[in-house]
């Protein structure tokens, strides 16, 4: 299993220069990828634009969306942005897509919240078609277009993974839960007669160091406030010590995860080094 790090794009009032510098430092290692999340009704950077900035200052790391809320977007424009980013970055894009969890983001864009599942299925088929459409440039650098991952935990998710995508990305939870979801992805994959096996990615949040824990917990409670009482429990899952990070990483590796992206809950540059030390 490889370990990636998230860019601090969904933390309030983070200067652009910090996001770019963060990417530069992540490139130094030991991280294999840079991940971004997607929110609309929130003080946050657009995921694909942020990854484009990161692409300009990195050569090695993969660039992945964890995830893009595809139903909020025009499919062809999303396909084109993804193809552009893939071409500009030398084929480093991994496009995770999902329906997202927050209705506010749908309200903010005028997208239909109730139709989100069906819309995502249609978009998954259309993304591939757009990447192959000669009339729509540029050609993605990766043959067949960027790798596609589908996120979520509902039953419909795994059919979408197997039918349309290259793999599954889980949005958070303990290794045991990941193992269960990975099983569903594998079951769906085999049932659909796909060759090989699905890519299995996941994410979790971290805030390392005594000075960061409180701010990290505040961020988590705030970011997940829409879940009501669950927010407290999600916040409790924040990785706040190197030991916790290492155990978590090990748990995911044993559950068969290919790439675990650790997202920051605090936007201080020293978090990059702290995480690097923890996973080294």
């Amino acid at each position: 299993m490889r370990v990636g790090i998230g860019l601090p794009t969904a933390i309030s009032a983070v200067p652009g220069s910090l996001v770019v510098e963060w990417a530069r430092r992540a490139e130094e290692g030991p991280f294999s990828s840079l991940g971004v999340v997607d929110r609309i009704a929130c003080d946050s950077y657009d995921p694909l634009v942020a990854l484009a900035a990161a692409a300009a200052v990195t050569r090695r790391v993969l660039l992945c969306t964890m995830v893009v809320i595809a139903p909020l977007r025009n499919t062809v424009l999303l396909a084109r942005e993804a193809a552009s980013l893939d071409a500009l970055s030398g084929g480093r894009l991994v496009l995770g897509v999902a329906v997202g969890a927050r209705q506010v983001d749908y309200d903010a864009t005028g997208a239909d919240f109730r139709e989100r599942g069906a819309r995502l299925s249609g978009q998954l088929a259309a993304l591939r078609a757009a990447w192959e459409d000669e009339r729509i440039g540029p050609r993605p650098a990766q043959a067949g277009g960027p790798r596609l991952l589908v996120g979520g935990t509902g039953n419909d998710v795994f059919g979408r993974v197997a039918r349309y995508a290259d793999g599954y990305v889980m949005g958070g939870g303990p290794p045991r839960l990941f193992a269960r979801m990975a099983d569903k992805a594998r079951a769906a994959w085999a049932d659909h007669g796909r060759p090989g096996r699905p890519l299995l990615w996941a994410q979790a949040y971290f805030a390392l160091g005594d000075d960061a824990v409180d701010a990290g917990m505040r961020y988590m409670r705030d970011y997940y406030a829409f879940t009501g009482p669950y927010a407290e429990r999600i916040a409790a899952g924040l990785l706040t010590t190197p030991q916790a990070v290492r155990q978590f990483v090990q748990g995911y590796a044993e559950a068969g995860c290919d790439e675990l992206v650790l997202l920051p809950a605090v936007a201080h540059l020293d978090q990059v080094e702290r995480l690097a030390d923890a996973v080294a």
Binding site: N155, F158, G159, R180, D183, A187, D191
Partner: peptide
């Protein structure tokens, strides 16, 4: 499932 692309499957061990 798979009779059409719209089937609503439930996957897991021994489904």
């Amino acid at each position: 499932g798979q009779t059409t692309p719209d089937s609503r499957p439930a996957y897991g061990r021994g489904f």
